[in-house]
């Protein structure tokens, strides 16, 4: 299905441009970290790549489109008003997996994210970290080839953040292509193989993680790393 080619993509909301124009090619590899200040268009870019954002100009196309092989974890996790186990089974139930297969997968993932004890409790009563882990497991249960995550660790404590990062690194090692937005530079350094730096709705710089972190080319990225407020 790779590569994904964005060419000259723009997104406008209510007549105002919120993204673009951007050009980007996503091929195998990763994890890719999308970094940049708030409002720079990270979320919009991920949504465009996932195909759930209306593009006003340009094209975003996978070499072989296969939406069923994507998964997306939203910034504030969407939790179904069901039990933890039913949240996990939902994506498989949608594509009509057989009951025994669903149960096996649910049991595996529920143990993997450490929610075995609350399997039959309503997911709406989970803590923020547990919700996010549930959302990630629910995204991974269909074994996607591409996983998008939008700031999955914002507002989470260190323990949950570490668990999620471990899970993501294992997932990447198992061959899932991870593309993730984060505002946490330390996290970006820990996870990134390559980096997309966004500013004011544009891609200001891209590159391999060591290059980008150790020798940023653009003045914007230098200022961003220094901690300057970017407008």
């Amino acid at each position: 299905m790779f590569p994904l080619c964005l060419s000259n993509v723009s997104v406008a909301r209510r007549g105002k441009s919120v993204l673009g124009p951007v050009d980007l090619v996503i091929d195998q590899g990763g994890p890719t970290m999308v970094i940049g200040p708030n409002g720079s268009g990270k979320t919009t870019l991920l949504r465009v790549m996932h195909g759930i954002e209306r593009i006003s100009e340009g094209t975003a196309a996978w070499a072989k489109p296969d939406h069923a092989n994507h998964a997306y974890v939203f910034q504030s996790p969407v939790v179904l008003r069901r039990t933890v186990a039913e949240n996990l089974s939902y994506p498989l139930y949608l594509i009509k997996y057989a009951k025994p297969e669903i149960n096996t997968a649910v049991e595996y993932w529920i143990e993997r994210i450490g929610l075995g004890k609350v399997a039959n409790r309503s997911a709406t009563r989970l803590s923020g970290g547990e919700r996010q882990k549930l959302a990630i497991a629910r995204a991974l249960i269909r074994d996607p080839k591409v996983l998008f995550l939008d700031e999955p660790c914002s507002n989470l404590d260190g323990q949950s953040t570490r668990e999620i990062e471990t899970l993501l690194l294992e997932t990447a090692a198992a061959g899932t292509r991870i593309i993730m937005a984060t505002h946490d530079m330390a996290q970006a350094r820990r996870l990134a193989a390559d980096v997309v730096f966004m500013k004011s709705g544009r891609i200001a710089e891209t590159g391999l993680a060591p290059d980008v972190f150790d020798a940023p080319k653009t003045s914007e990225l230098k200022a961003f790393f220094k901690g300057d407020i970017l407008e």
Binding site: I52, H70, F74, V78, L94
Partner: peptide, 9 residues
């Protein structure tokens, strides 16, 4: 639910 259900196609 909107975003999730759209995402899950």
């Amino acid at each position: 639910y909107h975003d999730l259900l759209i995402s899950l196609n």
